[in-house]
Design a protein around this nucleic acid. Sequence first.
DNA 1: TTTTGAGTTGTTCGA
DNA 2: GTCGAACAACTCAAA
Length: 451
Amino acid sequence: MPRTAVLWFRRDLRLADHPALVDAARRADRVLALFVLDDRLRRPAGAARLAFLSACLHSLDADLGGRLVVRSGDPAAVVVDVAREAEANEVFVTEDFGPYGVARDDQVERALGAAGMELRRVGTPYLVPPATVTTLAGEHYKVFTPYYRSWRDLAGEAPSPTPAVTWAEGPGSEPVPAAPLLDAHLPEAGEAAAHDRLDLFLDERAARYHEARNDPGLDGTSRLSAHLKFGCIHPRQVVARLQEVGGGPGIEVFRSELAWREFYADVLFHRPETAREAVLPKMRAMRSDEGSATDALFAAWGAGKTGYPLVDAGMRQLAGEAWMHNRVRMVVASFLVKDLHIDWTRGAALFMDRLVDGDLASNQHGWQWVAGSGTDAAPYFRVFNPVTQSRKFDRSGDYIRRWVPELAELSAPAIHEPWKLPGGPPGGYPSPIVDHGVERVEALRRYGELS
DNA sequence: TTTTGAGTTGTTCGA
DNA sequence: GTCGAACAACTCAAA
């Protein structure tokens, strides 16, 4: 009787460099590939991530010769059922460190245990998993730079070889879910697509990444975030390729961005409540606006109709691609928090709903950094000026022209401040919904109210 | 325990 | 136009 192990895929939708797969293949003769459509994750995931996930699953299923078993329901019940049907006694997973994932996996582990089976956590989505890097005092790091110095020393692990696997013909599977209808244009999903993106980045962009990454009009970033989010590629594989290419400032800065992802995962693991609450207790008293007038401002921001071209270009890119350039994420976040005085959690929730790469740790802590409430937060006086940022980082105006067609005929520098044109902004483009100079002072005043 | 140097991404103002 | 200082005070991490 051949032994079967279950490999429960989650955010690790690839076959190469997959430690849980390596272990499963070593300990059993056949591996059953399972994905559980968890009802509790469908709503918060947002349509873009569900669509990308669907495409990842189709790609993975094709790579498995159609043997991916998909089931929907409560993981604690589904995983036990499938393991029973497969007559497996071990279920392998890549460890999940998010607040929900930790609780879910503990529950599944208990359910499996009660049925005489085991959950085996092998590997993680990170080069250096949460709770690995500690200060000399044994605490988790609260500041990025010292974290990064320690992280670098530990991040050298090589990718694991892909094992020969006999994939089990599963018990019955539901169809791989179809992608929800979507207005946004998503990147190609799946393991092969992830490696194509990495190749493109290394060939054309990595060497100049440290400069080009700040220009939203250039495609200067890797655009690997969604693939990393779903584990189509592991950061270990990325770093291995970076090392082949060699060094240089572009490579080094890009690697530090991978470290940011891991730093925030580490912080969220140690402080799971910070997905909702300010890291800095003092900031919980920060005054924010609410009510119908504020709701109207929030809606204008969400629709890309604030009258500030760079802010609107960013929000429209978010609608169009379910993704936003990092520089612009900071600008739109600062605008919501410091110009509109709206609580960062509202903006973060909208991002999580719309982003194809929405990662709870990076998203919430990125917002908190901007809001000044986070780990290693921006100092209170750092208020982004949407016009200055536009002139500095979208100097040519190409990014604005791409996403705000009403302004497509304008050239720089007029495009950065269309309300200053005689006759006002063209093409029905709105005038600014607030005065940045006024609201900046108000933001600083509110900060001053905190003890 | 105490001390010391440092802390992703900015803006404004005045010289 | 360019440049440096000021914008607070605090917490973190290591010595």
